Amino acid sequence: MRVLHTSDWHIGRTFHGVDLLADQDVVLGAIADIVAEDGVDVVLVAGDVYDRAVPSAEAVRVAGRAFRRIRDAGARLVVTPGNHDSAVRLGAFGEFTSGEGLYLRTTIDGLAEPVLLDDDHGSVAFYGIPYLEPDPARHSMGITERGHAGVLGEAMRRINADRATRDARSVVLAHGFVTGGAGSDSERPIGVGGVEQVGAAVFDGPDYVALGHLHGPQTLSERLRYCGSPLAYSFSEASHRKSVWLVDLDADGLADVTRRELPVPRPLATVSGRLDDLLSAPAYDHLVECYLSVTLTDPVRPIDGMRALRERFPYAVHLEWVPPEGKGDALRYQDAVRGRSDAEITDNFFTACRGSELSASERTVVDRALAAAAREEVGAE
């Protein structure tokens, strides 16, 4: 049996305010193409189909189209919710969709009830662990152990107990942070009391464990992997090569895992420099079609910097100003005002905010304003 491991579609997410639905539609269509090209039997989505518990109508349409493309390409789907999804909403029509080859595993009570699919070697049992919020899940499971390790450990205990009763190979879908994985800036923290990671040994037993939650592809062991998100959702992922895992199961279990890279609808890039240089230098031509994060290093903060940047870089989405070293450094308030006159405090404020001293004409305006304020204080007394 050939299985495609995906996760963290996050349909409906925006990127610094930019709608990504069109990009998501492209890359999910590429997943369907892989299904057709490589003869995939089952596609796994290990959590976070949507980016929010109540997705927009447009996000639901993109998800529905992706599911249909994958089914039309010849694969069945096993899907679990993540920490962004609503398990209740995602699983609302699970008993009806299973007849169409879409298997939704969204409940704690059903996590040890596998989807059984057959190939020439017999059955493969697919177990889906929905994202388990530790405290509610602990009470629902009737256990005293706390945290992610406690609830995931109990989930795997139940799954392994069921596995022992079956003559079948097994695959588990789970959504969480396993020790040894590397996070990125776009993942929502799931820590409880500062502890969000679980040890890899929790997942001992199955032939393959398809992990979701971390957005970078990574291998914790041959049978324990993250595929990552199909798109980059933060600039910390600019160097990721987004991909999915093609998992082959033979009569004895896990036979092979290969990586299939996904297309990049629009690359991410970061750049720094002075505004005039960025707007004119040919060296930056290759960034015109990128989602761009810009750090301006002008000594004085440019006015309407983003507007100016977008005249050349229409997909600039993030901007910050970091003046040259020694310029614009903020002082602690007490150090800034101790033993200084009003004029000196005002001068320091302007220098710290914009990286340059007051001009002569500005100095005149400020002096008049300070004198007027002083007269008002005297009159009030």
Results as ranks from 00 to 15, higher is better:
R68Y: 14
R68S: 15
R69L: 14
R69C: 11
R69S: 15
I70M: 09
I70P: 07
R71M: 10
R71F: 08
D72P: 02
D72A: 15
A73V: 10
A73N: 07
G74C: 09
A75V: 12
A75Y: 04
L77M: 14
L77F: 12
L77W: 08
V78F: 02
V79I: 15
V79A: 03
P81V: 07
P81Y: 05
P81N: 08
G82P: 03
N83C: 07
N83L: 09
N83A: 05
N83E: 07
H84L: 12
S86R: 04
S86A: 12
S86E: 09
A87D: 05
R89F: 01
R89I: 02
R89Q: 03
R89V: 01
L90E: 11
L90P: 06
G91A: 07
A92K: 10
G94E: 10
G94W: 00
G94A: 14
E95L: 03
E95V: 08
E95Y: 01
F96E: 15
T97M: 11
S98F: 00
S98K: 14
G99L: 04
G99A: 06
G99S: 05
G99P: 00
E100I: 15
L102Q: 09
L102H: 08
L102S: 10
Y103R: 04
Y103M: 09
L104T: 05
L104Y: 08
R105L: 13
T107L: 05
I108T: 14
D109H: 13
D109F: 11
G110I: 03
G110N: 02
L111A: 06
E113H: 10
E113S: 14
P114A: 12
L116A: 05
L116N: 03
L116R: 14
L116C: 06
L117F: 03
L117T: 09
L117G: 06
D118T: 08
D120C: 13
D120V: 15
H121V: 09
H121G: 05
G122F: 00
G122Q: 02
G122V: 06
G122I: 07
S123D: 10
V124W: 00
A125Q: 11
A125K: 06
A125F: 07
F126N: 05
Y127D: 01
I129C: 04
I129N: 02
I129Q: 00
I129G: 05
I129P: 01
P130G: 10
Y131L: 06
Y131F: 14
Y131P: 00
Y131C: 03
L132H: 02
E133W: 00
E133P: 01
D135G: 01
D135W: 01
P136K: 07
